[in-house]
Structure formats: structure tokens, C-alpha cells
């Protein structure tokens, strides 16, 4: 499957999973969708028939709240059944809101931020000691970079020259309550460079750029690599983009769900079938109150302006 197709399916599954489960984090699922798609379509070595294959690249999604994006990728790559995606958040399911290692293809559970990069560094170090050639990947969030443990890991990985470690920052510029720069000033690339890493900054929705950045991360200084993937939170559905409300809100029945699905359909790549609504949804009218609860301009009118002010 092409990465563009996989990315579309991750977004479509993401809409369905959060819709059915009334679950959060659609914004993060959309921002990380292209990263996940390129990793699973073109970069990671894995064997869906044998998830524990020792030669596999190690991957963990440290921003565990975007778990639906990982589960969707695993379903499309043959680790789990597509039907199982509908059990997300449900009683008795394996698919918890945050990433669970009970799911085939997942080695490590996350959900509390700032854990993943440390663990990925440990795996990279073990690979070096044992002469194994796999790479250890971690996708982390930009808000997650508030956590001190991320920088503990950053120091460690540089010191031990873990050039088999790849950290991808899903830099969607937003965190739980506000834009990152309004929360704690970021200086993302400078920080990682200051910690000694091999820094690559790209457009995180450009698949060619992602492939080019991730194909080989070998470098002369044997440094760990960070790919700072500039993304848009909620990317793919206009009214969810750059809107902190969609860190929490799920696409409700009616206008929200139908519009989200139809916007995805308008950008559907060739060779993909929508498993839920093959022909899209009927057009729906916005609610009479102007969907005050659907977009953050009315939800919290100052966000956009404050990000601009900050710069």
C-alpha cells in the first residue's frame, strides 16, 4: 500500500473510531497520520505474521493519546483485523484510548508523556551492545517536550551516540490547552541541536520529505536523529485544523461527522475504498446556533491572535 493511501485510511478510521467511541484526540490522530503512514508503508521493517520478529525495527508511539492512528496502521498492515478497530474504548477491548502492548505489533504501552524516548533509547543501546542492526523509533509530541524526562533521554542518547535511535516530533504546535508557544516557549530545533542531536526539520505532511528524512539516519558524528515534523493539528478536516477544541471533541452525529467524512472523500487517493461510508455522507446543515461548540473561534476566540502575538 502506498503511504498516501495508508494516511487516508488512518484518518478515515480515526474519524470512525472516535465517532463510535466518543473518544478524544482526533486532532493528534490527524497530525500524526502522515508520519505513521510513511513509517508503516516505507520505513519500518516488520513482519505482521510474526510481530515479535527479532530483526524488526522497534517502534513506539510515545504520544499514546494518538493510539487510534497506530491501531489503524496496524489493522491496515495486517497485524489486527480491521473490524476490531470498532471496539476502540469499548468494554473488553484490547484497544485502549492510549497505546496498549496487548495489541499485536505494539511492544510498548504509553499514555503518560515523557516515557517513550527513554525506553527507545534503552532499546537502541541494547541493540548496540548485542550487535543487532535494527533501528529504534519513537514518535513524541511537541507538548510532550514539556516533560523533563524527554531531555534526560536526549542527553543520554547523545552521550552514548545512539545513531540507531530516531525520534520524530509530531510538531503540530498545539498542546492540551493552547498553542505550545503560548504555554512554554519552544525553540524546537535549537533545543535538539543544543542537546547534540542530528536535527532534520521538514513538513510532516509531505510524504516525500518524510521518506527522505527517515530512509537513512546514519550520520558522521554517530548522533541520534530527531526529525522535527511540522504538522497541523487536525490536518485533513478544515474545521478541526489548528483548533484546540478538537484535542478533546469527537465528531458528533450529523453535521460534524458528515462534513468530516466528506472532506476526507474530497481528498481521497486512488485505489482506496472507504470501509464505512463508501459513497461519502449526505450533505448536512450546520446547527442553528452556528455550531458554537464545534469551532474554537466561538469556543475561545483569543487563541489564533495570541499565537500571532507571541511571534
Amino acid at each position: 500500500m502506498k503511504s498516501e493511501q495508508l494516511a487516508w485510511l488512518i484518518r478515515r478510521h480515526g474519524v470512525e473510531m472516535t465517532h463510535l467511541s466518543k473518544g478524544s484526540h482526533i486532532g493528534a490522530i490527524f497530525s500524526v497520520a502522515d508520519i505513521m503512514a510513511v513509517l508503516y508503508a516505507d520505513i519500518l521493517k516488520y513482519d505482521a505474521e510474526n510481530p515479535g520478529w527479532d530483526g524488526r525495527d522497534r517502534f513506539l508511539l510515545s504520544k499514546g493519546h494518538a493510539g487510534a492512528a497506530l491501531y489503524a496502521a496496524l489493522a491496515e498492515c495486517g497485524f489486527i483485523d480491521r473490524e476490531e478497530l470498532k471496539t476502540h474504548y469499548q468494554n473488553g477491548s484490547r484497544l485502549s484510548g492510549h497505546v496498549s502492548h496487548r495489541v499485536p505489533g505494539v511492544d510498548f504501552s504509553t499514555g503518560s508523556l515523557g516515557h517513550g524516548l527513554c525506553v527507545a533509547a534503552g532499546r537502541a543501546l541494547a541493540a548496540k551492545q548485542d550487535g543487532k542492526s535494527f533501528r529504534s523509533f519513537a514518535v513524541i509530541g511537541d507538548g510532550e517536550c514539556n516533560e523533563g524526562s524527554v531531555w534526560e533521554a536526549a542527553q543520554f542518547a547523545n552521550h552514548y551516540r545512539l545513531d540507531n535511535l530516531v525520534c520524530i516530533v509530531d510538531y503540530n504546535h498545539m498542546q492540551s490547552l493552547d498553542f505550545c508557544n503560548n504555554t512554554l516557549e519552544v525553540n524546537m530545533a535549537q533545543r535538539w541541536a543544543g542537546f547534540g542531536w542530528n536535527v532534520i526539520e521538514i513538513d510532516g505532511h509531505d510524504h516525500n520529505a518524510l521518506r527522505a528524512a527517515l530512509q537513512s539516519t546514519a550520520n558522521e558524528g554517530h548522533k541520534p536523529t530527531v526529525v522535527i515534523a511540522n504538522t497541523v493539528k487536525g490536518k485533513g478536516v478544515s474545521f478541526m485544523e489548528n483548533d484546540v477544541l478538537w484535542h478533546y471533541r469527537f465528531p458528533h452525529d450529523g453535521w460534524e461527522y458528515n462534513c468530516a467524512v466528506n472532506e476526507l472523500h474530497a481528498a481521497m487517493p486512488e485505489g482506496v475504498a472507504d470501509p464505512y461510508t463508501p459513497d461519502g455522507c449526505p450533505e448536512a446543515q450546520p446547527e442553528p446556533d452556528g455550531c458554537r461548540h464545534t469551532v474554537s473561534e466561538t469556543y475561545h476566540p483569543t487563541y489564533y491572535q495570541r499565537e500571532v502575538d507571541c511571534k
Binding site: D107, F108, G114, H115, L117, C118, V119, A120, A121, G122, R123, A124, L125, A126, A127, Q129, D130, S136, G148, S149, E152, A153, Q155, F156, H159, Y160
Partner: peptide, 26 residues
């Protein structure tokens, strides 16, 4: 010496690294 690491004064990372290494069979 090859089975020893000083992770510095950073216990969160130290413990996460330990988990990562243990996942790899250490």
C-alpha cells in the same frame, strides 16, 4: 565494564532505559 552504565543524575530516563534494555532481553 561492558555491562555497566552511568546514566547520570536522571532517574526517570535511567528507569526507562532499564525497561527498554530489559525488553531486549537484558
Amino acid at each position: 565494564p561492558n555491562q555497566f552504565i552511568n546514566a547520570g543524575i536522571a532517574e526517570q530516563n535511567l528507569t526507562g532505559v532499564a525497561a527498554g534494555m530489559a525488553l531486549e532481553g537484558k
